[in-house]
């Protein structure tokens, strides 16, 4: 059976201030996988998804989503940025933030209406935050804020989800909520790409993994390639994990 690829990245090279961050990355992400991107700090994990999403312009290479350019396929893609990337003291409520997920499908100028509110409320319910919908976002805990961000992406109703460190500094409840939602998304045939740095949980949470350290080290099913050899290649030191399969 031929594999259908949700995302393909060809020869992607990115440099910040002409300092290389990603070099000649070729990557194909099959449809329907739950993939972790792992690598040491500064390996370019966030940069990779940011350049797939068009936030950063690469100096070479191309990205396609289901065979077409990102610009044409925007509505198929949802994004959960790092929690620390925004000012949580911004005067707005959880519901308002989640509604932002529907702005892309609305396009310019049009205002969100009942349908958008409904979508936002449903997304909030999925992440267990419906009770907090009118809460100012600074009054939420770190985990709750992360769940609001996830709900915003769910409200986009996309086919491919990119998430930047969604498990960073969250409580146990949030971690379980998030991973259950990720698994549900996979069951529904969606593709999920997560920048992740807790190596211990990779085999438990994900079925696909990409090792990245400026260059792509390896990509494939967790069962086949998540081993000490690849970890050592990625992290540079002699790496041993107690992988609990």
């Amino acid at each position: 059976m031929e594999i259908k690829y949700a995302v393909t990245v060809d020869d992607l090279t990115v440099a910040y201030n002409y300092k290389p961050v990603l070099w000649d990355i070729d990557l194909a992400i099959p449809e329907g996988v739950l993939m972790a991107i792992v690598g040491p700090n500064g390996a370019g994990k966030s940069t990779l998804i940011k350049s797939i999403l068009g936030i950063i312009n690469p100096i070479a290479g191309s990205v396609s989503i289901y065979g077409k350019s990102y610009d044409k396929q925007r509505k198929l893609v949802a994004y959960v940025p790092q929690k620390g990337s925004v000012d949580w003291d911004f005067p707005t409520t959880a519901l308002d933030v989640v509604k932002m997920g529907t702005y892309g499908s609305l396009g310019w100028v049009k205002r969100p209406g009942k349908a958008q509110k409904k979508a936002a409320l449903e997304a909030l319910e999925k992440v267990g935050m419906l009770a907090f919908k009118n809460r100012q976002i600074s009054q939420l805990s770190g985990g709750q804020q992360q769940r609001v961000f996830l709900a915003r992406a769910l409200a986009q109703n996309a086919s491919i989800y990119f998430m930047d460190e969604p498990f960073q500094g969250v409580d146990a409840t949030t971690e379980i909520t998030i991973i259950n939602i990720l698994k549900e998304l996979r069951k529904a045939g969606k593709t999920v790409v997560v920048v992740h740095h807790d190596l211990q949980t990779v085999p438990e949470y994900f079925d696909w993994v990409t090792f990245l350290n400026v260059k792509k080290i390896a990509t494939g099913p967790v069962k086949e390639i998540f081993n000490d050899d690849n970890l050592t290649k990625t992290y540079g030191i002699n790496y041993k994990v107690s992988v609990q399969q």
Partner: peptide, 22 residues
């Protein structure tokens, strides 16, 4: 008033606004 939605989105999360195509 016309661009209220866009202004709000940009103020809160500019990168995200970019991924949505604004």
């Amino acid at each position: 008033l016309l661009f209220w939605k866009e202004f709000k989105l940009l103020l809160f999360d500019a990168d995200y606004a970019k991924t949505l195509g604004f």
